[in-house]
Amino acid sequence: MVKRSLIKIFIKNEKENTLEGEIIFSPFKKAKKFLLLFSGLSSIIILFLLIPIIFLLTTSDIEAISQTINNKEALNSIFLSIEAGILAASISTFFSIPLAYIFSRSNFKGRSFIESLLDLPLVMPHTVAGIAILLTFNSRAPIGAFLSSIGFRIEDSLWGIVLAMMYVSAPFSINFSEQGFKNVDVSLEKVARSLGAGPFKTFITVSLPLAVRSIIIGWLMSLARAISEVGAIMIVSYHPIVGSVLVYEWFTIKGLKLAASLSILLLAVSFIILAILRLLEWRK
């Protein structure tokens, strides 16, 4: 939950960066009461988001954390989260790039409709997404039957986890890649074409290298989102168990304290991703 808020903050930042101009006029200048009211209300929301993390960090202790680190099940679940997350983010980024390029370079009828449809996974309950994936890809459904015949059975398998993660995280790689391509001036491509480069060559030598930063950010966002997923994964493929699902399981079986120490480890992974994102942002 906390992580999701952080992701939202990041998206907002990215959009602000694309706005032209700076704030020259500050509405808070010489307006003490106004400033006081607004910063008071702001601190409430900041505290609301931060205090739970502090409680999470203080509930557990070193002993419980080291016990968790030495727990094979816990460690495996975290590595599985990362592995499946990287797979999911990479596959969806690979397929998002051509789609994002089409979106950024054409203006066909119904484009914005398709774009909003593709954002649907961001707003639907994740258990609902899980049910939809299970209905489509279970090994008795046509697509699922085909996939399991070539070795991608989704029930209780890594591929089920990857599919569930992809479904909820793909919108990030699509949106960020699209923004990346939109920021590449068309005249840069025109010159390449006029100098003899075909459309594919132009894409590889000009458009893609110039959009790659945004694409990487999209990949990281997808990864972060994938690792944080619970609902869809629980419905599609509860086992092998990933970190986020194990937190829930420990919470119901082993109690709050151990669940909290596992949470801290997962939180650390999220913070690393966030730190890389910020680094990319800062290097811009």
């Binding site: 005249s187 840069l188 006029s194 132009t202 000009v206 110039l210």
Partner: peptide, 20 residues
């Protein structure tokens, strides 16, 4: 013919040098 098959060099107003 597409632009890449014409052998005509286009220089847009902003020069469009590739920044990378």
């Amino acid at each position: 013919l597409p632009p890449d098959k014409r052998n005509i060099s286009y220089v847009p107003q902003d020069y469009a040098l590739w920044p990378h």
